[in-house]
Design a protein around this nucleic acid. Structure first.
Lengths: 324, 324
DNA sequence: CTGAAAGCGCTTACAG
DNA sequence: CTGAAAGCGCTTACAG
């Protein structure tokens, strides 16, 4: 509970000097800075953030905003992001504040209170929806924010994302080159999420490059028979790229039920399945959520000077797939 | 950006009176309190938490601590907890601060900085490990904390948990009564987690009550054949209670592969599987993480007066299983 | 029932 | 290179 006052008293300096020394102000001699820091360590000094934030009119916190509606399974990804975000924040002496709620109104209130009450000036959104009221709010406030996932066409703000086109192509190539699959199909949901479109494009590109005939499965959550029909209609398939691990695993099991004696190689995305549920024929492209979280913080703290004029700041995090 | 000063000036009152009125101090007349609040609303007043926390020597924040090592799939549960926690915090004008890291050292540093730097006095741990350094730290600091999951025998601190013995019994009874299963087996991991022991006890109790012969599968993550052997050794089984959804689903698929023409009813725990992966023969006991999060906050803010002397404060959250 | 004043622990313009 | 002083926006003991 030592304060800068205690340090000042002990060293016969003024609080101004101690404050400046701790903040590495060039106007204080190197020697004094060093000595002040030593005494601070010795006394176990920890700055009182509430006092500091009050003077600075800015909190040493980043608001991390969860989407209102999400698939339960995406939670796996979110916690990976939190890990990466907090790792970068800790080294900057920042803390991670969460905004999460069951309705847009709740989250909006939460964020407003973060801005005006807690004086938080930086935010990371774990999603990038179109026409999102929270994003709209942030755009009209004197705050910075970064989204996980690129904004829809026509919208511009800083973001972190994977290269999903390449991820789609890489998953396809993995099956062909590494697993010797001849006719991989592509399975997507009927929702048409942006990342699905991109991965599909990558798949199509790779199929065209290798002179293969592409086949797209649009898998409905509702109609359970539909998937079986699709599989039966494509007896030549010996592999599949699925836009997510769940669709991939469902496809795998359906295939095995229909053809117990045949094998199929499947690639999904996100590394979101526990070992309990997979085997050596199931693969997943790792999107590296921890690195995405780190990149988001780096973007958020980047000096404006390093920004390229008229360009949208963003970071593309590399994905990877493990060779079995 | 209005301050209490602005309100005071506008109303011809002192800042003391405004501050007291906003804090509902009885010494201020009801009429003045009402008028002050009206003007505050009108000016869009939001208290500056940094100033308030500085004077109060306590932050309006709860630290939420993640375990260092966890199964990726548990993340689903954690986000549910966050939702419940934040819902209760918002109504108390508190914010949620996250401590998460890749090593115990990181998390310890994080928590220490929360205590001395941010002046956070209340914590919720999303786990309840034995001999945990973070818990040991919190016990020796002037802070309050609650864990999700009951402490091991011999340890005492406030916690929120389910009644896992009953949850084990209820899952078993559900299979017998609702799904007409005759010989449910019980599948657990080889880790011997406390909740597994409790659920197993509930299963055993229910089997004994209905004069059935219990069978326990200890499912290893490593040995893939072992599960098949267990299934083959118990051809009479027509249902299973698994300590978690993943073990349950794995068991289901293994069974179907071995006996494609037979059906089996399975109960897991946590509601952690997406619809994509389950069907009408798979059931899950919902542990209501959101309610657990809410209960944790309530416990944390409970007045000491309402605590029962010499008893460990805790809340048991009811589980539930949906009738298909 | 209300107010003047001190103080929480910092930062920083101003002065030397 | 260092310091005295003001101020950030609150709360609360003291006084009336």
């Amino acid at each position: 509970m030592a304060t800068i006052r205690d340090i000042a008293k002990k060293m016969g300096l003024s609080v101004s000097t101690v404050s400046r020394a701790l903040n590495n102000n060039q106007r204080i001699s190197t020697r004094t800075r060093k000595r002040v820091k030593e005494v601070a360590d010795q006394l176990g000094y920890q700055p009182n953030y509430n006092a500091r934030n009050l003077t600075n009119r800015e909190a040493n916190a980043v608001g991390v905003i969860f989407p209102v509606n999400n698939r339960v399974v995406d939670n796996i990804f979110y916690v990976g992001l939190l890990r990466g975000i907090n790792e970068e924040l800790t080294s900057r002496n920042y803390v991670l504040s969460v905004a999460i709620g069951n309705s847009t109104e709740q989250v909006l209130e939460n964020v407003k209170s973060m801005i005006t009450g807690a004086q938080i000036k930086r935010f990371i959104l774990l999603y990038s929806h179109i026409n999102d009221p929270v994003i709209n709010l942030l755009r009209h406030q004197p705050v910075d924010f970064v989204t996980i996932g690129k904004p829809a066409a026509g919208q511009k703000w800083p973001y972190v994302d994977n290269n999903n086109v390449r991820a789609g192509a890489d998953g396809t190539r993995f099956l062909i080159d590494q697993r010797h699959v001849l006719q991989p199909i592509f399975a997507e949901s009927s929702n048409g999420w942006p990342y699905e479109l991109d991965r599909r494009e990558g798949y199509l590109r790779e199929m065209s490059r290798t002179n293969r005939k592409p086949v797209i499965f649009s898998v409905s959550d509702q109609d359970d028979d539909q998937l079986s029909r699709l599989i039966k209609a494509n007896p030549q398939m010996d592999g599949a790229v699925a836009t997510d691990d769940y669709t991939g695993l469902k496809l795998y099991h359906r295939f095995k039920t229909l053809y117990p004696n045949r094998e199929i190689e499947v690639v999904g995305y996100n590394n979101s399945l526990p070992n309990e549920l997979t085997n050596q024929h199931f693969h997943s492209v790792d999107l590296h959520p921890t690195e995405m979280g780190q990149a988001a913080v780096q973007l958020l703290f980047e000096k404006p000077a390093t920004q390229i004029a008229n360009a949208v700041k963003h970071t593309i995090v590399a994905h990877s797939i493990e060779l079995a």
